[in-house]
Amino acid sequence: MASVLARDGLLRRLRGDGVSRPVIDPGLAGGLRDWLEDGLVESVAALPTGADVVRVNKDSLNRVLLCEAHLVAGRRAPRVVTAELARGSLVDALFRQWVTTGVIDDPWADAVASFDVDGDRDGVVAFVSGLPEAHRCRLAAEVAEHAANLVERWPAPSPAWLPRTQERVEVPLCGGRVVLAGVVDLVLGSPAHDRASVCLVELKSGTRRLEHRPDLHFYALLEALRSGAAPFRIATYYSGTGELDAEPVDEDTLVRALARVLDGAIRLCRLTAGVEPERRPNNLCAWCVGLPGCAPGQKRAGTDVALVSSGHGGREGALS
């Protein structure tokens, strides 16, 4: 259940007040790891010598499970920053700043500065600098609105909860030939002793979607594999609306996530081994960069010209 929550309510939901935290099963993480490695052993054995490490992150997982051909086409195409992606990255930076310092004075300047100092690896600053003035102002206004929502609704967590932002988690499997990887927006709580004590939070600046849940389950699995203890709670916070989707983590959650990760990782291994990608027409075919060369996708989309979801030209522009 999601709802717009005031600060106290949000904290209560994150802490899971009134709900007992699960006791840690010391053998669970090892069992999950064994399960994953057993399931991957054949796929990894089929990888050519010297093949790149197969990296499984939430993006590659979502794409490969949607359609292998979509993933391959996306990897071949140059990376395109869209207005939505830029907004997401800028709001993520402001969330990080808010959690760390409790201050956001000038949302646009602060967010852009955070990318400037960190090398702008994803080209966000380059993208926003190249936007026409009107589009940039509109994006800045959106970012400011999200920042205002954060300041108003999100409680700066107590430092005693050991909040850490953009925490990178990497889990090597099968001797490091497959690596599960993720960057969690916010981790709260000290490492668990006998009861689960960590809460993971993902921030989304876009619309609330059911598909965000599996991302969180993936992160819960990563945390369990890394630290030997699953988080007690995982949550997605929507900065645009103030909605919070929070759920407890139990063994079923982890097992479901594991099955999904295993399916995706096997597919990613197959692609790395050079197997022809499987095509699975779906409702995103119309936006796939591989559409011009994909007959099943064209049949599904009813066109051979891909839509563009950015504000930069194309047949559909969010900011145009």
């Binding site: 760390t100 602060d110 400037d116 100092v117 960190d118």
Partner: peptide, 8 residues
């Protein structure tokens, strides 16, 4: 650094 850079 500006505030945003210091925060990172």
């Amino acid at each position: 650094l500006p505030d945003g850079g210091r925060a990172v």
